[in-house]
Design a protein around this nucleic acid. Sequence first.
DNA 1: TATTAACACGAAAACGGTTTCGTAGTATTT
DNA 2: AAATACTACGAAACCGTTTTCGTGTTAATA
Lengths: 339, 339
Amino acid sequence: MKAKITLKDIARELEVSISTVSKALKNSEEISRDTKEKVQAFAKLYNYKPNNIAISLKNKRTKNIGVVIPDIVHHFFTTVIRGIEKYANARGYNVIVCLSEESFDKEVINMEMLANGSIDGFIMSLSSETQQKGDYNHLKEVTEQGIPVVLFDRITQEVECDKVIIDDELGAYQATKKFIDQGKKRIALITTDDYLSVSKARTKGYRKALEESSLGIDESMMLKMPSMEMDEEAIKTFLDSKNPDAVLCVNEIFAVCGMRWVQKKGLRIPEDIAFIGFTDGVLSKYANPSLTVVAQHGEKMGEESAKMLIDKVESEAEVETYQTKILEPTLVVRDSIAH
Amino acid sequence: MKAKITLKDIARELEVSISTVSKALKNSEEISRDTKEKVQAFAKLYNYKPNNIAISLKNKRTKNIGVVIPDIVHHFFTTVIRGIEKYANARGYNVIVCLSEESFDKEVINMEMLANGSIDGFIMSLSSETQQKGDYNHLKEVTEQGIPVVLFDRITQEVECDKVIIDDELGAYQATKKFIDQGKKRIALITTDDYLSVSKARTKGYRKALEESSLGIDESMMLKMPSMEMDEEAIKTFLDSKNPDAVLCVNEIFAVCGMRWVQKKGLRIPEDIAFIGFTDGVLSKYANPSLTVVAQHGEKMGEESAKMLIDKVESEAEVETYQTKILEPTLVVRDSIAH
DNA sequence: TATTAACACGAAAACGGTTTCGTAGTATTT
DNA sequence: AAATACTACGAAACCGTTTTCGTGTTAATA
């Protein structure tokens, strides 16, 4: 086992000072050609690499960014992380991932853990519990300490920071409009409770499209699932009783379950009943029939978030101005609707 | 913006030395009751939290573990990360995630980036390119430096370190045996090229089961996909020409594609043709019919890996003894086979 | 009363770098 | 020859902790 070599080691071997070594390795003008060559050669030979921790301590920059998300076993978040990681890596940053598992307490603990010097900034999506409680003090504390935060997807207006979202309302609006244009009359919505900012926005878009049409809104055509846990029975009962000819679901899973059930009953998709979901994951792609979805462009979202964060981290100016970036969703048309 | 308070700040305010503050906060016996109370009260008031970076530099322990995986948009890896994160967090560690994206170079770069003090150890799964090249010098260098490494799932025998795998051979063997017991005669295998350690093991299990049976092996019943990219045509052609009555696939996607195709041709699943895949992901669960799979217990695998790594990191002893933990796979029976 | 022990605290080194500033020695200018 | 300007390097501070060791003060002991 050969331990890592330090500046001090090089200095001792070469009988120069630590400062000289440091400067020589940085190709400083201050150091003579001879000395530089000697030091650099030695460093290369012994594979010297500066210690990140020491540099972090000195610079007060860790080149780490903390990502706090509710769940990682979830296609959307996973693509966001990929976007973050790719972008951050390209700019020399590492990504520390923490999972809140939809718990307020875990979210708080994770942030506190990271806020003590481990990271230069946060990228996060709120846990459902946090959104329910409406308690954002942990976020406010962090921003007050001058640590930049970027919120994505599940955001709140109560914290002043940069934000990246997709226009969920628009996505739902377009999807619903698509149904209307295709002559669907009984358009249902399967969503979760309103505490999730995204569900709320999607419901709004759905309502808006119906209001604008001649169809109008029928409250009973909306099924609100109390939690994000799957409850197949609720969906089946709902579909059986309301008999929709089109269903908009706020995720893939609700949609796939719905499709499976109506197929079992002998209905044809999309002729008798059409489906559109949210999130362009594997499920939609390989479902039978393949599912039309409102794609959220998670990777793009991750990139944007990382860009906003790193720009802020690296900007000297203490700009107290925040922006919200709204990405446009895309309808990915597959076989679960007519086309 | 209120900046973080340091020991020095407290010392100045309270007119004591830094050492006294440090000791007082640690409840040292050396410090008088009075002083301790004073310091602790002040620290609490100003919400003092020690700087992680400084502590890391001092202790030469970061409490970070580096996870390097080929891809994060992949259910299996995602569950492993969750397992790692949960376990590591419980023991006070953070997880830095790096993606190799199946590239050898990225794997090397990521490891180098982290190996300079950012982490206490690695948990990783090899990129396909690395397994193809068979070049493991980056791993060897790291272990030689005394940084513990735990390899999971996609491992190699050429590096001496702890390893966690599932018994892929056994999983494939059991799945194939299941087909045989159910009277299937033309049992096909859809796999990827052998360079992936897991594909190799699964193929071996498949062969073993057939060899032990009266059916024997027909090389042409094995389809080797050259890459992990989906090639639907190859699968269709293969299924059409070989006409199997059972198909074992090394992942979910191959299986779901296969199912979709044979259903389109009017075959019944599982009566005419049965399917078993690997990886218990969302796809299997919500496929139509739902897919029987060999579950890999990713979360368990993550936990085990994290446990092995942290135990090693925290053990003072420089034990040069490594273990390989083999987890048992489970057959999750769903509607794609008779039951 | 002189010695020792206990107590409570501070100085300083250490972790591994970066960076400012001072300076000895040489080269250039007047 | 004296004044000035470079060149090339080292000392030391600093980032924020922890920890060892030394020491002044008081209390207990001989």
